[in-house]
Structures are given as C-alpha cells and as structure tokens.
C-alpha cells in the first residue's frame, strides 16, 4: 500500500467520523427531526460567527436536547475515543508490545481511586473530575519514579512498576467500595468505574479539551519517533533518539489523554487495546499513518458506542459493558486474522 493510498484512507476516515457524528446527533429518545437538527447546528455557527441567526423553526426543548445534551456528549465521546486509542497506540510502540493498553502505568486505576475518594467525601461533580485527574497523574508519577529509585531505566522496569501501582490502586479501590455507604455512594462509585457520559456538560468538556488537544498534537507530531522507539531501546539510542526523553514525553501525553478521558466518563476498557490493532489491520503498522488512523477510528467507534448506550434500552448502559461486548469478539477475530503476532 503506497503512502498516497494511506493518505487517502486517512481522509476517508475523517469523512466517516463527520458523518457518524452528524447521524448520531440526530438519534435519541427525544425525537428531533434531522432537518431541525441541521438548522439548530447551522444557527449556532451563523449566530456565533456571522451574527446572522436563522429563522427559528424549532422549540426550546429541541435546541436544548441538541446543543446541551447530545452535542457535549458526542464531543466528549470523540475526545475519549480518540484519546484512549492514541494512548494505546503510543504505548504499544514505546513498549514494543502490541498487547499493551493505556492502563499499563496505572493511570486509570489511579483516576478511579481519586474519583472514588471524592465521591466518598460527598464532593460535587467538578471536584470529582479534578480528583480523578489528580489521582491519575499521581499514580503515573509514582510509577515512573520507581525505576529511578532502582536506577534501572529500562522499559521492563517501568512495566513492572506499573503493575505494582495498578495493583495497589486496585486494593485502595476495593477499600473505598467497602467503606462506601451502600445506599448512595457505592452505586455511584460502581457506575463511575463502568463508564458513562450521561451527565456530561459542555463545561466538563471545555475543562479538559485544551489539554487533550495539546496532547493529541504532540503525539501526532512525534508519531515517526514512535516508529524509532519500537525498534528497541538500544537501537533507537544508536539512531540518536533520546529514548528516555521521547518516552517520557509520550508517557506524559498518554497520561494526559487517558486521565482526562477517565475524568469525563469513568474507566472504559478495550478501546486502547482494540482500536490500534484495528488501525494496524487496515492501514499498516507504520505509526505515521496508524496513529492518526487510531484517532479517527477511535473517535467514530466511541460515538457509536455512546449512541448505543443511551438508546438501546430504557436506562443508560455503562459504556464499558458495550465496549467489552463488542471488543472481545473483535479482538478474537483480529487474532485469527493473524495480523497480530504475539512474540
């Protein structure tokens, strides 16, 4: 597959994402005719940029649904889907292992502990999110400090440290569940750990969007370096790559992406593992194309998953359940296609 073909494919994925986004914006329990949806969206642009609002043919409820309920949700889904996929892709390259997920260094476990603590203390949702961010960063910070303690900077040491910290965070999490009041807090914590975009507000999205966008840009800019890192530490070093610095930067960006994702919607599994594989299957293993592909495919996937979550049954299905149910057979199929070589 030539480079040109791959570039066209990326463009195709972008178009798919836009389509999926628009279609899912029209789908929901409260019926809004697609024409009105389009008009509401255009009106937003027309009013905001050109100061020339359209004629109002819709009612307040419709506008509220589209702009205040569905749009922030889908936007969050895009960021979360892309963020988790790119984190997974970056880690898989950095750690030379296609079976690695963004939770490798413990960011999800730490974020969950942070959120649970905030829920136990009765904090409002914004504080819960900040607490999740703090917990995620703290966990990764401890993880990357352990190799420094043992003065062994290899990636194996890093992975081991991640396992230790994730395990520790997991026990803390169990402790919190045990302390939690079963009437109110426990169900809150459990629902949070399964992932949901039900209560997302535009302000929540705007709080994390700048950091996430910066991280996206950084990882995409460094995507060729991921290729170099995937050759292994000593080879990359010999090619003049400052391995610990580049690896550190990639870990930082991935942590930002994953922590922000978790703080918006709780923990969601499988995406960071499956979407990069899927991208590899379609567009090849060169990170120059695989990483942007993961961004686009991950975003589309998450938008679709969230739409299922809020429309399949009467109540909201937690996102992790859908990604798990969809992700597991897809992963088995990918293994069967033997594009994943387990070494």
């Amino acid at each position: 597959m030539s480079h040109r073909t791959k570039r066209w494919m990326l463009a195709g994925f972008a178009v798919v994402l836009v389509f999926v986004f628009l279609i899912c914006l029209c789908v929901g329990r409260f019926y809004v005719p697609p024409l009105q949806t389009a008009r509401i969206l255009f009106n937003c642009l027309a009013e905001g940029i050109f100061h020339a609002p359209l004629e109002v043919t819709w009612n307040d409820s419709m506008e509220s649904i589209i702009l205040n309920v569905r749009f922030p949700r889908l936007l969050a889904a895009v960021l979360v889907g892309a963020g988790l996929s790119v984190s997974g892709a970056a880690y898989q390259g950095v750690f030379k292992n296609p079976l690695v997920s963004p939770d490798l260094l413990g960011v999800s476990a730490g974020a969950t502990v942070g959120a649970s603590l905030a829920i136990l203390l009765g904090c409002a949702s914004t504080l819960i999110q900040l607490s999740a961010l703090a917990g995620g960063f703290l966990a990764v910070f401890i993880t990357v400090s352990i190799p420094k303690l043992f003065r062994n900077n290899s990636s194996t040491m890093l992975v081991l440290a991640g396992i230790i910290i994730a395990g520790f965070m997991s026990s803390l999490q169990s402790l919190m569940k045990y302390i939690a009041d079963p009437e109110v807090e426990l169900s809150s914590i459990v629902f949070w750990t399964m992932g949901s975009l039900a209560s997302i507000k535009m302000t929540d999205v705007l709080m994390v969007a700048p950091a996430m966008l910066a991280a996206f840009v950084a990882v995409i800019a460094m995507r060729w370096r991921v290729n170099l890192l995937s050759l292994g530490e000593s080879e990359a070093l010999s090619l003049g790559v400052h391995v610990s610095r580049v690896r550190g930067l990639l870990i930082l960006c991935s942590t930002v992406l994953t922590a922000c994702s978790v703080c918006m919607c709780g923990t969601i599994g499988w995406i960071g593992l499956v979407i990069p594989h899927f991208s590899r299957l379609i567009i090849g293993e060169d990170n120059r194309y695989m990483i942007p592909a993961s961004v686009l495919l991950g975003a589309s996937f998450m938008v679709i998953v969230d739409t299922f979550a809020r429309n399949l049954t009467g109540s909201e299905i937690p996102l992790s359940i859908i990604t798990g149910v969809l992700g597991t057979p897809v992963f088995i199929w990918l293994l069967k296609m033997q594009k994943v070589r387990v070494q």
Binding site: G93, K96, N97, P98, N227, S230, L231, G232, G284, E285, D286, Q343
Partner: peptide
C-alpha cells in the same frame, strides 16, 4: 540480527 516487532 533480530526480528523487529513491527512490520515496516
């Protein structure tokens, strides 16, 4: 000589 992990 070693086999690379990824297929470039």
């Amino acid at each position: 000589v070693a086999v690379p992990t990824f297929n470039y």
